[in-house]
Nucleic acid binder design. Structure first.
Lengths: 156, 156
DNA sequence: TATTGTTATACTCTATAACTATA
DNA sequence: TATAGTTATAGAGTATAACAATA
């Protein structure tokens, strides 16, 4: 039988029914939006999400080691090196040798680092309030809690 | 006054109090975990999140144009080209010229494409059930809904 | 033997500018 | 003028392997 020439016309509206059933799909879309807005928010401070996060943890934990910081940020050690390099070059943090373990560095924020973090953090709080403005506190708490409970699965 | 030599010791436990207050921080951490698990889930099918998503939308919307697909996926047109190229090269979709608009392509999944998507989708559903196993349906619905309501802000 | 920090490297995802061919 | 698809390119994030110094 001859192949019927089916006229293909682009659909009026895109049906994403299959994907809408997956939480991961919504997470990606939402995170991309949040990430893009956060990038603009941090631009005036010359920070990115990663340098902001690292600075926040160093400000809150003076003497932190790079291994601890990488673990807390959920990234691999090699990826942290350039981040810490950048913060140190800008004199927002200092890298001190730990006397009791000569392999490790103790990371501490400088006064400039703490000041910059204070300003950047205020901007981040405003960014969050803007993005999640139409979300009531209970929903926001549920969202935060649900997200923070997602953990790595053990390998089978 | 001489600078006091303060002995810096790494903290026992990392305090992430500041960051825990931000939804974006939890979104990133959670998405990284989901993304890593999804990558492993799709590996046997030689798909990534982007090729899987594109295939899902083409299967569900025969005749879709690339511009529509890029818009539905929330990515820029140039980034879609290599994705569509790959799906076409693997003969999972076909690119047909649209008779009424000779600039556009109509994307349609082949039988092989629909079959592969069926198998991959089953694996993705299992992956989601595994990752969100300890989350009850109401929470999952709240999470999905809250995430899908996050929208781009208008420029001020 | 294991860990800290490092280097080198590769892969993926995202965005923008500029082009062509059509509309 | 505007849109569809494309090319080229750059930037950012992530991961692994392998190394020197130290524990």
């Amino acid at each position: 039988m001859a192949k019927a020439a089916k006229s293909i016309t682009p659909p009026e509206k895109v049906n994403d029914e299959t994907l809408r059933a997956h939480v991961g799909y919504h997470m990606k879309r939402a995170f991309n939006i949040v990430q893009a807005d956060l990038t603009l928010t941090l631009k005036p401070f010359e920070l990115r999400m990663l340098t902001y996060t690292a600075l926040a943890l160093i400000v809150g934990n003076p003497g932190l080691s790079q291994a601890q910081l990488a673990q807390a940020m959920g990234i691999e050690r090699p990826n942290l090196v350039v981040i810490v390099d950048e913060l140190e070059r800008r004199e927002l943090i200092v890298r001190d040798k730990v006397p009791t373990d000569r392999r490790a560095y103790a990371l501490t924020a400088t006064l400039a680092g703490r000041r910059l973090f204070g300003k950047a953090n205020a901007a981040v709080i405003a960014h969050e309030n803007r993005l999640f403005a139409d979300m009531d506190d209970a929903t926001r708490a549920t969202l935060t809690d649900a997200l923070s409970r997602i953990r790595k699965q053990e390998k089978t």
